[in-house]
Amino acid sequence: MTLMHHDTVEDIMRGEKGHELLRFLEKIPELDQLKIELIDGKIVMQASAAPFHNRIVALLTAQAVGEGWEVLPEQALISDISSFEPKADLTVTTEEAIRNNPNPLPVDHVELVVEVVSSDRDSDYVKKRMWYAMSRIPLYLLIDPNECMIELHSQPDRLSYRRVDPYQFGDPVPLPDPFSFAVDTTRFKPYPPKLP
């Protein structure tokens, strides 16, 4: 990527160059252990998630795969909203939708995205939720181990989802069509209290 002297950081991140910079960073071996996303025009790098976070992701993966779905951890997603390229904790889709191995995966190939809240609550509760809704992803499952709370967002409409169904850890979370199962949350664990 060649930068012109008059390019500002905001110009770079808001346009296609933000995606080019993301591709560049993904090729640096020293950054392999980081999750690198483009969120609201900013490159966000996060270290590996904690075990309870990863455990929830693993439990969800096993359930969805057992029901015949394709489940992609940290899959880059793309839409015509150029200042974003998130990597949801889980993306649920069909075998047909990934047959040609597209990367980043276009959002019209996605049935459900899952985010497990870790350190940046604003990203999962506000920025990603808005982008998922604007990009017309049918279902967004938000899991917050800080609060032992789950929200199933459905019916995307402009900047948000029209419907939000709240649940607690331990509750079954029924997924609407095209899914035919309820997520079992009985083995989800809350994050331990943070040490002072």
Rank of each mutant, 00 (worst) to 15 (best):
P178I: 00
Y125D: 10
E37T: 08
L59N: 06
D32C: 13
K35E: 08
M13E: 03
Q63E: 15
E151N: 15
I98K: 06
S123F: 08
P51H: 01
E95G: 15
E37F: 04
A64C: 13
E30K: 12
R55F: 05
P102M: 13
E111C: 12
K189W: 00
L141T: 08
H19F: 04
V183I: 15
R121Y: 12
A76M: 11
Y132A: 08
D7N: 04
F24N: 12
H5S: 07
F24T: 12
R163Q: 13
R99L: 08
K127T: 14
L21V: 05
G68M: 11
V44D: 07
D165M: 14
K35M: 08
P172S: 10
E70W: 01
R163D: 12
D89A: 00
Y167A: 04
A133N: 10
E147G: 09
D122T: 14
L105K: 00
F188N: 02
Q75I: 08
Y132E: 09
P176N: 14
I78S: 06
S123E: 10
R162A: 09
L90C: 07
T2P: 09
V116M: 02
P178G: 06
L60K: 03
S119A: 06
E96Q: 12
L90R: 02
L195W: 12
S48Q: 11
S83K: 09
L3G: 03
N100W: 07
T8P: 03
A64W: 15
K27W: 00
A50M: 06
K35W: 03
R55E: 09
D40F: 08
Q75M: 12
D89T: 04
E151M: 14
P138D: 05
L22E: 00
R162F: 04
Y191H: 00
